[in-house]
Write a protein that binds this DNA or RNA. Structure first.
Length: 766
DNA sequence: ACTTAGTAAATTCTC
DNA sequence: TTTACTAAGT
């Protein structure tokens, strides 16, 4: 069957030999519920992928297998590794994040639960704008009740499967009662907009399964083997959805590590994994306790820290690896010095311990911390990159472009309309939109339907009504070809008409040029994706982008030091890890100082951080740090004190440095052992402000972004004289890209040099 | 309707 | 330091 040739008995058996006894058991116990408690570095992903390969080898049809992960990165890695084992067969396996898998299923059955299949997916920003609009509508001041707090409470409620009715019944305080009211309106508003937020993707999946027995049966029959990765991070809704899907065949295998649960704040319920054996009484439990990643020292340190948490699943991690060197703890005078120190430690380790830049990761608690470390790295010419910093997709111009495209696909999408109806300015102001929104709510129609009849709505100015009419026509005109023409073409033609790119082009500042280029990149990206998969629709593209916020790939490429938050580091490993900002109030965060649960979560996060390291681990802290615009004093993190002192060296407290500690020698070679600050001070005369700043985002858009220069493109040639309606006569200096993404660099006679996109700029050859 | 200036607040993590 | 909201002025 299928391309099973890639998967002979031999490959399976040889793989089997590569697994230890427990891993093997976890992989081949395919029937019934299985709980795999997988300690850090115990080969979890390996077991999961082998398990899937094994199922396929047993003759299980690929489409019977469902594998759910939390991040796109994890899903992608799993697919790649399975592909490695079984080849193309993997294409039948449904593997993805909860949200993406459910979104796909929900599109298919959308009409059964009262949605149109082109529903929009709302991210946190869209949620917030909906909440704000509702608060204005209800006359609740944001001064009294911060909108973002309301958004958070609504989302938490939904995570815990609490409906607005239930929330309303349980509301006691004024704040809760008002929130309940907003909650109710919020649900109605999203429904009217034919939109689901992230939580709805889970909740509607449950609704679908509960309300449509046929669908439930169909899906249960289809997904006979279900696997859930990072089970400790599931929330109530995810738990329920999985429970429903697995109820019939009960071939549910969950993998997780309670010690690595770090998403409580977004509704993850650690109880789900703790209670698995109770919920599935006949479950086989397998413990993966052999660590293949870290040295004995690192493991001991991690263990001594996590021991301070209560209520854990029994698990004893051990390793055959070497003792390894001690953990280096370095106190610094301030955050700048810390950054310099990190740079020096990394550079020294690369030189002395024969490490590549890509062998090193610098981890921190908050994204803001990366700035100074980046500066230090750049100054010293150490190649680095930021993993999932500010996403490309969070940029204003990109969000605007996507909003335009979403309106095209789903005109009911209120939040997207509000976002772009006056961007660029069309003379449609707040008052007008407020009136139209009120009217839409009163008549219980979509905003777009109301826009169509704007002239009949009382209180709307003639001028505004005309502008609205033009906007409606802009949308409807472009919707015509949406199902017949290639998505990139539709998008490009549409965007050229919206005037968004023109607005940035005419602003003609460095910043607007960037924005314009970003729009261009997005449009090119659609083209690329389409070339990769010709069945791609605009709707699918938007969904794909909405559910992606990780800057996955690309980030891993190249020989560079990786810098990221500890959350982002989950699932990764590096020969050398530096954890920065080990200070009370930063790590653990201030709010954890009172709350035991918060503190335990921070501790688990620290545990995750420590266990990323294979051989070298360095912890740093600063005695003073610039935060919130002012200098603050801080004390070393309590977590440092929790590490078994036998595992640690450094200038922390009055412990004397051990001479056998390799890294320590390197660090101290140029300074006095007592005051490490002396060697890490900034050289005189150089300041950080003189340094150019690095791009702050890490765009996941792959390759081909920098097209090669050409002599002739789309009928234009280098050297040609052209006329531009805005800039006048000029000469084409260079050409790049092709078709819709073609660009020309033009030197205009007025002295301006511009990069223009041929699809947008109306260049006339003279 | 749009611009500007002034003030307040918020700064963790993610699908 | 940066962002975001409000109010007043054009």
């Amino acid at each position: 069957m299928l391309s099973q040739s890639a998967l002979t008995k031999n490959t399976v058996e040889s793989l089997l030999e590569g697994l230890n006894e427990h891993q093997r058991k976890a992989a081949v116990t395919t029937e019934g519920p299985v709980l795999i408690i997988a300690g850090a570095g115990s080969g979890k992903t390996r077991v999961l992928t082998f398990r899937i390969a094994y199922l396929l080898q047993q003759g299980i049809h690929p489409s019977s297998i469902l594998a759910l992960t939390f991040t796109n990165k994890a899903a992608k890695e799993m697919r790649e590794r399975i592909t490695h084992l079984v080849g193309d067969t993997v294409y039948g396996v449904m593997a993805g994040t909860f949200h993406s898998v459910f979104a796909r299923i929900l599109r298919q059955y959308a009409d059964l639960i009262g949605y149109n299949r082109s529903f929009s997916i709302y991210d946190t920003d869209d949620q917030l704008s909906a909440v704000k609009a509702i608060m204005v509508q209800l006359g609740i001041s944001q001064q009294v009740l911060p909108a973002n707090g309301v958004r958070g409470r609504i989302s938490s409620a939904k995570n815990a499967m609490i409906s607005w009715q239930q929330y309303s019944n349980g509301a006691n305080s004024v704040i809760e009662k008002q929130t309940a009211q907003i909650f109710q309106e919020y649900e109605a508003r999203l429904k009217r907009s034919n939109a689901m937020d992230f939580d709805d993707l889970l909740l509607n999946m449950i609704r679908l399964l509960q309300q449509q027995p046929d669908v439930l049966d169909q899906l249960q029959e289809r997904f006979r083997y279900i696997m859930v990765d990072e089970y400790q991070d599931t929330n109530k809704a995810q738990y329920k959805a999985v429970e429903l899907l697995a109820r019939k065949y009960r071939n549910l295998c969950v993998v997780g590590d309670d010690a690595q649960s770090i998403y409580r704040w977004r509704g993850a319920d650690i109880q789900n994994i703790l209670d698995f054996e109770r919920d599935y009484p006949k479950a086989t439990t397998v413990r993966l306790e052999q660590n293949y990643r870290s040295t004995k020292t690192i493991l001991a340190a991690a263990d001594s820290v996590i021991k301070n948490n209560s209520g854990r699943l029994k698990k004893e991690l051990w390793t055959d690896n070497a003792e390894g060197e001690k953990i280096l703890v370095l106190g610094c005078r301030d955050d700048r010095e810390e950054a310099e120190t990190i740079m020096k430690v990394v550079r020294t380790a690369m030189r002395e311990s024969n490490l590549q830049a890509s062998d090193v990761a610098v981890l921190y608690r908050t994204n803001a911390q990366s700035q100074l470390i980046e500066d230090a790295m750049r100054r010293a010419n150490v190649a680095y990159h930021i993993v999932s910093g500010v996403s490309f997709y969070k940029r204003k111009e990109i969000k605007d472009t996507l909003a335009y495209l979403r309106v095209l696909v789903n005109p009911s999408d209120t939040e997207s309309i509000l976002r772009i109806i006056n961007e660029p300015s069309r003379g449609i102001g707040n008052t007008t939109m407020q009136r139209l929104q009120d009217y839409a709510v009163e008549t219980n129609t979509t905003l777009f339907e109301t826009l169509k009849i704007a002239e009949n709505v009382v209180g709307i100015q003639k001028r505004s009504a005309t502008s609205v009419q033009n906007f409606v026509e802009l949308i409807t005109r472009n919707q015509v070809d949406i199902d017949t023409e290639p998505p990139a073409l539709v998008a490009q033609r549409f965007m050229a008409q919206t005037g968004l790119a023109d607005m940035y082009r005419l602003q003609n500042t460095d910043e607007s040029q960037d924005r314009w280029n970003n729009i261009d990149r997005l449009l090119s990206h659609i083209q690329e994706q389409y070339e990769f998969d010709e069945t791609l629709t605009l709707s699918q593209y938007i969904e794909q982008i909405s559910l992606l916020s990780d800057a996955d790939d690309e980030a891993t490429g190249g020989n560079r030091v990786s810098m990221m938050t500890m959350h982002a580091a989950k699932g990764l490993e590096y020969p050398m890890v530096v954890i920065a900002g080990m200070e009370q109030g930063l790590f653990p965060l201030a709010k954890a100082e009172q709350d035991i649960d918060e503190r335990e979560e921070e501790r688990r996060l620290f545990y995750v951080g420590i266990t990323r390291a294979k051989q070298h681990l360095v912890l740093t802290y600063a005695e003073r740090r610039f935060r919130f615009g002012e200098m603050n004093f801080s004390r070393p993190s309590m977590f440092i004190g929790e590490i078994d002192p036998a595992c640690v060296v450094g200038n922390h407290s009055n412990r004397t440095p051990h001479s056998e500690a390799h890294a320590v020698q390197n660090v101290w070679e140029r300074g006095s052992p007592k005051r490490q600050s002396e060697f890490s001070q900034m050289p005189e005369g150089e300041t950080y402000s003189q340094l150019p700043s690095a791009p702050r985002y890490n765009a996941p858009i792959p390759k081909s972004i920098r097209p090669a220069n050409k002599d002739s493109v789309n009928g234009y040639t280098v050297g040609q004289q052209v006329n531009h309606p805005m800039f006048g006569i000029g000469t084409i200096m260079a050409l790049s890209g092709s078709e819709q993404s073609a660009k020309a660099t033009v030197m205009f006679n007025n002295g301006q040099r511009k990069q223009l996109m041929l699809a947008f700029a109306k260049l006339e050859v003279v």
